[in-house]
């Protein structure tokens, strides 16, 4: 009896105070966001300011800016940063160039009956494991692989593992993430606008340039946030098809897993964070965040 009355008292108190209700509802997800997300970022920053004992690999909690200085001034880290950003940009451009016609076909040309099937077809590769797809590209680029076999009649041989293989693999892996936002953007574009432009005498090229592209641009930027950030943080595909090339992710992985230098790894890990902050603020200006 007493527990029931306590429960009913609590429930009536909650009914009377909507603020307490809201606080209780939100505290769990907010705590999660604060601890696991912001807290992790803060820990990353703090760790970057420590150093390790080179011999034992133990972390020495003495404040130092050495790791940040190494990452900013050492030519190796600069080269790897520019290589990673360059590949991220290239992957994004390739995906955008491939995704635009595909998404246009899906949204404006294909009959409504086919549309869900096409969306499913684009999503289908996401069901397969990332590793399986990366290893598939490894065997395609390998000696005697598909590319060697296809190119043989034309005297073309596979470029082997390296940047080319990495760009191809990553562009393939992130392709669905580019198609879907553009498809959604084009879907919202009224067909009447295209017809009106045509009625006024614009040729298809001009319609694309002056009507479709400006309206779909925020969606492209939204898709590029995925392709760009996913490439920026990737290291597994690089490990599998990248040959001797290193990305920022590999430097983080090697510093934690191999060199047991977590502070330096944390300092390297801050680079993509900074790059993404810049990228996101630029995207926001382009109005892309409403299209995510």
């Amino acid at each position: 009896m007493r527990t029931v009355s306590a429960r009913s008292r609590l429930s009536s108190w909650l009914t009377r105070t909507p603020r307490a209700r809201l606080a209780l509802l939100l505290s769990a997800p907010l705590l999660w966001l604060g601890l696991a997300y912001i807290g992790a970022l803060a820990a990353l920053l703090i760790t970057a300011l420590w150093s390790t004992n080179a011999f034992t690999g133990q972390i020495e909690r003495v404040w130092t800016l050495d790791n940040i200085r190494i990452v900013l001034t050492d030519p190796v880290y600069r080269a790897v940063t520019f290589r990673t950003i360059g590949v991220a940009v290239l992957v994004t451009l390739i995906d955008a160039a491939l995704a635009l016609p595909v998404a246009f076909f899906m949204a404006k040309v294909a009959s409504p009956r086919w549309r869900p099937l096409l969306v499913a077809a684009i999503l289908l590769p996401l069901w397969a494991s990332y590793l399986v797809k990366a290893y598939a590209w490894r065997s395609m680029f390998g000696g005697g692989g598909l590319i060697d076999w296809l190119g043989a009649p034309f005297g073309i041989t596979s470029p082997g593992y390296g940047l080319t293989a990495t760009v191809c693999t990553l562009a393939y892996l992130w392709f669905p993430y580019m198609v879907l936002p553009i498809f959604a953007g084009l879907d919202r574009l009224p067909g009447s606008l295209l017809e009106a432009a045509g009625d006024l005498g614009a040729r298809p090229g001009r319609i694309l340039r002056t009507v479709v592209l400006p309206m779909v641009f925020p969606a492209v930027v939204a898709g590029s946030i995925f392709t760009f950030s996913l490439t920026l943080g990737d290291y597994v595909a690089v490990e599998i098809v990248g040959g001797t090339k290193q990305f920022l992710g590999n430097l983080v992985y090697d510093n934690i897993g191999a060199a047991s230098n977590q502070p330096l790894a944390a300092a390297v890990g801050l680079v993509p964070v900074v790059v993404m902050i810049v990228y996101l603020s630029l995207s926001r200006r382009a109005g892309a965040l409403e299209h995510l």
């Binding site: 807290g39 992790a40 803060a42 820990a43 990353l44 703090i46 760790t47 972390i59 909690r61 977590q262 944390a266």
Partner: peptide, 14 residues
């Protein structure tokens, strides 16, 4: 990430 967090917590405690 959890490890780094743990290190940070330990650091604060010590």
């Amino acid at each position: 990430m959890r490890k780094i967090l743990a290190i940070a917590v330990v650091a604060m405690l010590t």
